[in-house]
């Protein structure tokens, strides 16, 4: 049996009630009004509903105030929206290319080709249909670009150290994958290293694949630009510094430029192994 939000509460304790509405859990619903009356929490069901109205209003308005302040969540929305726009623009661009090839025989591809069609003059209705689709495709790609610009402006305010080391967009991606800055700050660096590689990680746990060495941090030049044999070390070093940066951003908000120098030095040493090996 699970407990209702009122279990163990003093009926007049507003703060505790609000906390319970926000943080309580149960697997299945039960006849809470009846249970509350039986437990002596409320005199009758009408009194129970009056109290429920009061506390849900208070809890929900507190939760709204709390969440609206959390700018990391705005960043999460923006970076997910950017990914959606990019993906959809690319999908539509393929459709446009296929269609354009059939009408004009030229074989362009991608968003650039869609842009070139968007500027064409129409000769018939088919041209118009294809041109407006191409315009929408280009429009979505533009939207992705303006979301990227928004992220580049705001990520440094939300997570200055993380944005410095990872770049604003990768910083936003990591925050998004973790579900928020606080959640990211609480993850061990080994988890940060493979964030975004969940599929590969599950395959590994099922015994079908080697363990992934990096997730989305692969897009960082310090990982991508390191030769294959040393990429695991580079990813580990980078993830370690990113974790520290996320913790400082979440818990203190201080700026720590020395983190950048430390990271540069670690990576330099790792990349130097290639030269030593060559000799």
């Amino acid at each position: 049996m699970s407990n209702g939000w009122f279990a163990g509460l003093d009926p007049d304790d507003d703060a505790a009630a609000v906390e319970q509405i926000e943080a309580g859990r149960a697997d299945t619903p039960e006849d809470w009004p009846q249970q509350a009356v039986e437990a002596g929490f409320a005199d009758d069901e009408a009194a129970y509903y009056d109290r429920l109205h009061e506390v849900t209003m208070a809890a929900t308005s507190a939760a709204v105030a709390e969440q609206e302040g959390a700018d990391d969540q705005q960043l999460v929305h923006a970076v997910r929206a950017m990914a959606d726009c990019e993906r959809t623009a690319n999908e539509l661009a393929e459709r446009v290319a296929e269609w354009g090839g059939s009408r004009y025989g030229d074989s362009g591809s991608g968003v650039e080709y869609a842009r070139s069609l968007a500027d064409r003059d129409d000769e018939d209705e088919g041209d118009t249909a294809l041109r407006t689709l191409a315009e929408q495709t280009a429009g979505l790609a533009d939207e992705a670009d303006s979301l990227r610009a928004y992220i580049e402006r705001t990520a440094p305010a939300v997570a200055p150290n993380l944005s410095m080391l990872a770049g604003p967009v990768l910083a936003a991606r990591l925050i998004s994958l973790a579900g928020g800055l606080e959640a990211l700050a609480k993850k061990p660096s080994g988890t940060v290293q493979v964030l975004g590689a969940e599929d590969a990680l599950f395959a590994h746990l099922k015994g079908n694949a080697p363990s992934p060495k990096h997730g989305v941090i692969f897009t960082h030049e310090y990982v991508r630009g390191t030769r294959r044999e040393d990429r695991g070390s580079a990813a580990r070093a980078l993830a370690g510094k990113l974790s520290i940066a996320a913790r400082i951003d979440h818990y203190s908000g201080d700026r720590r430029p020395d983190l950048q120098a430390e990271l540069d030095e670690r990576i330099e040493r790792i990349q130097a192994r290639a030269e030593e090996g060559d000799e």
């Binding site: 699970s2 939000w5 509405i21 309580g24 149960a26 697997d27 619903p29 006849d31 809470w32 009004p33």
Partner: peptide, 11 residues
């Protein structure tokens, strides 16, 4: 749903 089943009754 586990995050509100402690508030919502069967409906």
């Amino acid at each position: 749903p586990e995050s509100y089943a402690h508030v919502v009754e069967p409906v």
